[in-house]
């Protein structure tokens, strides 16, 4: 049985798809058989971030409507034998994801994978609720910014009331906070919520802090999950996050501003 992980946030543009791509690739690099599923029907983008947009033949909705088998729709990643991508449909409407059918597809994925990563669309509509309904774990992607934090809290409420685990009275979904686009210098200047602030407000366990990084845009430009950019701060932060998710105890990095010397602080404009 696979563990189903939903990447959620409520607010758009905070880094869900970047995170889904990085996490899925990271798990695959650790030898875990991983499938990453795009739930953003109508606005698919995971294929682009993963760099397999030209290899899409069938999609999630085709599988749901039994127009294609799961194996026909899954795209094997060229960089890792352990990683497969199930793209969203670009043309259908979001209500194409019927709850039972989504459950059936996830169950079939569970048979052959260790982890199924569900990339949720923004918002709290059907696609987003379907992405989280069957989840065992949730990674709540949050920017250190008021609307993102508020939306994350809203998602926590939905996770704890409208998921399958909640409805069946099972052990609740394990929720993790992933803080992205973090800028320690702005935190030091008092202009950005700190890791501790966000954790205190949301009372969530912290699984990682991804610094604001040019590497993220470069990676998405090239269609390469940023975790493969081993030299970049964001790539390393995602690698740490994957290790933490798998149970390793690793201290958080990139949460402190680089210390500058007295003189450079004095004279830099």
């Amino acid at each position: 049985m696979a563990r189903i992980i939903v990447i959620t946030s409520g607010k758009g543009g905070v880094g869900k798809t970047t995170t889904a791509a990085a996490l899925a690739m990271g798990l695959a690099l650790k030898g875990k058989r991983t499938a990453v599923v795009d739930f953003d029907v109508g606005l698919r983008n995971l294929d682009l971030i993963m760099g397999c947009e030209r290899r899409v033949v069938y999609d999630f909705v085709n599988v749901i409507k039994e127009e294609a088998t799961l194996n026909q729709a899954l795209i094997r990643d060229k960089r890792s034998d352990h990683l497969y991508i199930l793209p969203a449909s670009q043309t259908r409407d979001k209500d194409a994801l019927a709850k039972d059918a989504v459950g059936r597809v996830l169950e079939e994925l569970s048979d052959s994978f260790d982890f199924v990563v569900c990339d949720s669309p923004a918002g709290i509509e059907h696609g987003a609720t379907m992405a989280m309904y069957y989840a065992d774990d949730a990674i709540v992607v949050t920017n250190p910014e008021v609307s993102s934090v508020r939306d994350s809290d809203r998602m926590l409420g939905i996770l704890s009331s409208k998921s399958r685990r909640a409805e069946n009275g099972d052990e609740p979904i394990r929720e993790h906070l992933l803080l992205t686009r973090y800028d320690p210098r702005r935190v030091d200047n008092g202009d950005m919520l700190s890791v501790e602030d966000v954790q205190e407000i949301l009372s969530l366990s912290l699984i990682g802090v991804i610094p604001e990084s040019k590497a993220v845009l470069s990676a998405s430009n090239a269609g390469i999950p940023v975790i493969l950019d081993h030299d970049s701060d964001a790539g390393q932060a995602y690698a740490d996050t994957v290790s933490r998710y798998l149970g390793e105890d690793i201290p958080h990095r990139f949460t402190e501003a680089e210390k500058k010397g007295f003189l450079s602080r004095l004279f830099k404009g």
């Binding site: 508020r150 935190v187 602030d197």
Partner: peptide, 19 residues
């Protein structure tokens, strides 16, 4: 310090209310 304190206070009130 700057605006982060204001953000935190506003969020704490809001989140408590929402919850």
């Amino acid at each position: 310090k700057g605006s982060a304190n204001v953000a935190k206070e506003r969020l704490q009130i809001l989140v408590a209310h929402d919850r």
